[in-house]
């Protein structure tokens, strides 16, 4: 049964529980913005746990003045169901480091692009069995032929697209005709 909760009292409880998670001896005031970026490197994408939210380019900015912390994040796709979860994971990681009330701000502009995935992130995707996005998002053709995608398992370029849409919004489904393995391709957008 759904609960007809009073949203105000609920959020107060949330804050209480959250503040309990903050370690008593944490000294976030000693941390720099670089330290915070390093901390966020540990937050993995829930759908592609091989890469961090920083490597995927989801974290756009860190604002830290020694007292207030706010993080700009951008969703990969408009309807990405992992967006809220990612924001929660980031909040949790920051609280664990001692930040009591980190703010997460969602920014839509400029729109996320696979061009923001770092080279390291792309390598990790490949090692994880996901072909990283090929080329630049601006060169994507509308009605033309699909790009040539190398198999992340054997490196062969003799691959075919099975479906433009894969297991999550950000992936397409491919098959390698050389080693016969199916694989996900991280779509270029």
């Amino acid at each position: 049964m759904p609960q007809h909760g009073d949203s105000d009292s609920r959020s107060a409880v949330d804050i209480l529980i959250a503040s309990d998670r903050v370690p008593a001896n944490a000294r976030p005031d000693l941390l720099t913005e670089d330290d915070i970026w390093a901390l966020l490197e540990e937050v993995k994408d829930p759908e592609v746990p091989a890469v961090s939210v920083v490597e995927l380019g989801i974290v756009r900015a860190v604002h830290w003045d020694g007292k207030e912390l706010s993080i700009d994040v951008t969703p990969t796709y408009s309807g990405c169901p992992a967006t809220e979860l990612i924001e929660e994971l980031i909040t949790e990681a920051l609280r664990a480091a001692g930040f009591r009330d980190p703010k997460i701000k969602q920014v839509l502009t400029p729109a996320w692009t696979t061009d923001w995935i770092t080279d390291e992130g792309k390598e990790k995707l490949r090692a994880f069995g996901i072909a990283p996005p090929e080329g630049s998002s601006s060169k994507m053709s509308l009605l033309g032929e699909p790009e040539v995608i190398a198999c992340p398992h054997c490196g062969s370029k003799d691959t075919e697209r099975v479906s433009e849409f894969g297991s999550t919004a950000c992936k397409a489904l491919y098959r390698c005709k050389e080693c016969l393995e199916p694989f996900d391709y991280f779509k270029c957008i």
Partner: peptide, 20 residues
């Protein structure tokens, strides 16, 4: 199965855009 994934992906995009 591939069609189902595609249709649901498109639906998800549209609902996400609707929300915005």
């Amino acid at each position: 199965l591939e069609e189902e994934m595609a249709l649901m992906n498109v639906a998800l995009d549209l609902v996400g855009q609707a929300r915005n």
